[in-house]
Design a protein around this nucleic acid. Structure first.
Lengths: 222, 222, 222, 222
DNA sequence: TGATAAGCGAGACGGTACGTCCGGTCTTGAG
DNA sequence: CTCAAGACCGGACGTACCGTCTCGCTTATCA
């Protein structure tokens, strides 16, 4: 139940698209106002001027509703691969930050982490894909000789995404701006780069890239 | 309500200390088994063979109970400051990891993050102190000239604590072992060190430290 | 909606007459098994192997369906007027009893009484006609001098139909047989007869009747 | 559950008496406005400014709620036994009529009749007690020789209570006033009295009674 | 020693939210 | 215009749990 299928069902009365929108909107609003734990489907229903039954018809659980509501437009994760590793990472971070800055998204992530283990599995998979993309980009850089071979790409990805998570969950004492992002990328690359140059910004060789397919993949993810 | 006071006993029957212990134990157990959201005070009461009223007499809310139960023994955070920056950071990371490896603590942290904003304030303050200690250590290193002056210590702290958080919350795909920690510290220091040496492990100069108080502070924290 | 029209077929596919019958049968059966309140159109549809839509096409509401189903063959109420007042009344009672003995009919009557006021109006009119016939018969007897002039015919009709209703609704502790009917009629007539004779059965004078039209009218009724 | 016990329970928080009253009042009001079938516990809860859970704690079902609400003050049925049979019956009828005139009570009776068979049993027993009292009074009269011995007292009781039921359920076309009641009693007694006198009102012998206990019993009943 | 006060188990309370059922409506696609 | 199939909306349902409260009792300190 609550399959929320996109299959082009022929039989049956179609769903009221205004309800779809109202439910999503109410969910986002309440998530922003109250957070995940204090979000009740009854409240969503009331604000959307419908009933819980209509919600359960669309989503099988609160976590599914929240996931779909918050990450609905985020089916467009992008892996930047222009060849300029530093710029690519900065861009990917900026995207992540943009997502996590939305209070609803932050509340959703925190809440979903708190779900029971069975529920968690499903969502963690999704929320991992952002890191997955970072990892892939880093591995390509490694293969291209831009990064030291003795450092695990997964660790590097945690070095990129972890600090963002840390600041956001910690209550945003330091604002995350472009300078912050630039510093982060610089330190990580400076520490992991294959060549021995002292400052990352002055001695990069963007022309040395060997990538054959500079592209922009879209991926469903957190 | 639920003041949990340590003030010297006034009139009235004193609390049963066996109940105190039973409630804490039940809370830890259930937190481990079910996680924060699925933890109900009714279940705690049942397992502790008492009633919810006895719990509310001690703790004003679920979040307070969990906080006290999980971080009761953790009033002993340690800031390592032996002069060997790399070793110190590794040790601090190891401590953090140790905490987060306990399922009850992990569940508690995640759960407390999800509390309503008013509740959150109180707890976030606590959970921030670990990072605070890291920041302080890094600032001392910066003052000693071990680190580049143009990098924010708070950012570096996020670079140390963030990846740990990231891996733990991400479901522990990669196990966090000493090698992982070593790599992490190496990359960060390599990227942020004042001198231009390529590999952190070979060219450190621990002798250059100027600290006057190599100590081990204990701090109430996460 | 649900006009159940007999108007000559216009355009379109004609109704399946087997469905008509199946719906009626299912209604009667379920009324017998479960009673009015527990009768759901969904259940009727299922048993008739069709859908609720097909039912709503025929009947505008549950009460209309039940009314049509139960009283479909009962458009044939009979007013006995043989001249023998006692026998006529006994026969009319017997007819009423026969109807009310059918569990479906009893359930229908009780259920229809419970409908909202707007719905009730329609049905009460119908269910009153049986008493109406009794009243008419009694008024003719009064005009013929068989009954005391100072007693209201409507009251007497209630004295005839009321006890039947009372016993049937009361759960049928006493079975209604011919002896019961005979006693009922006897007591009422004995109490309301114009002459002062003590026992109704011994001193009747059927010959005194002045009716001009001994007949058997058929009337749509309960 | 929903025992509504009167047992002097020691443990547990006592019920809010204002809620008790509000629930009863709301039930009566809604019963009057909408009737039994259209009465929902949700609506009762809303009007009483509480929730359905509070209602279920007191009453196990809608029928129990209605029964208790409507017949709460009616635990005081009275069997008149002054020795004057005619007056006694008139009084008992007047009481019945008074009850049935209340729209809520009428709606309740009709609705309860429509309940499923298992539910009905419980309520029918109650609603039968009024007739039970009438029957008892008539049997005493029979024993005292005031009534013919060959007529069943239960039938006579139906002759007394049936017409009232008939008129009330029929929609109250004729108003039930004292004259109506007097006529009813007169006809019945005239038809069932032991002596042969023509008019009941002129030849009664109230002094011939042999009752030893002229009393007024109170009985829980419909 | 007796009053005061807080603790205790037991258990019901008022209320929020839950997840489900069903009544009545609507749409599609075929006949 | 009818049919079946089937999904939809919204009202109501009955349940589970939360945090509170009252009870009768026990256990301590204070006067």
């Amino acid at each position: 139940m609550g399959e929320n299928t996109n299959e082009q069902t022929s039989a049956g009365r179609p769903r009221d698209p205004r309800l779809d929108a109202a439910i999503i909107d109410a969910t986002i609003d309440l998530l922003t106002e109250r957070g995940y734990n204090e979000l009740s489907l009854a409240a969503v229903a009331e604000r959307a001027e419908t009933t819980t039954a209509a919600i359960y018809r669309r989503y099988g659980s609160k976590s599914e509703l929240v996931t779909k509501a918050v990450f609905r437009t985020d089916g467009d994760d992008v892996v930047a691969d222009t060849g300029d590793l530093e710029a690519d990472l900065a861009m990917m971070i900026r995207w992540s930050v943009e997502k996590l800055q939305r209070p609803a998204a932050l509340a959703a992530i925190i809440g979903l982490l708190g779900e029971s283990k069975s529920e968690r599995k499903k969502n963690v998979v999704e929320s991992r894909s952002a890191t997955q993309l970072t990892t892939e980009r880093l591995e390509r850089a490694k293969a291209a000789g831009e990064l030291r071979g003795d450092v695990d790409a997964a660790l590097l990805a945690s070095l990129i995404d972890g600090p963002v998570l840390h600041v956001v969950l910690g209550g945003m004492t330091t604002p995350i701006d472009d300078a912050w992002i630039a510093q982060l990328v610089q330190v990580v690359l400076n520490g992991a780069r294959a060549d021995a140059t002292r400052t990352a910004s002055t001695t990069r060789h963007p022309k040395s890239r060997t990538h054959t397919t500079p592209k922009t993949r879209k991926v469903t993810s957190l």
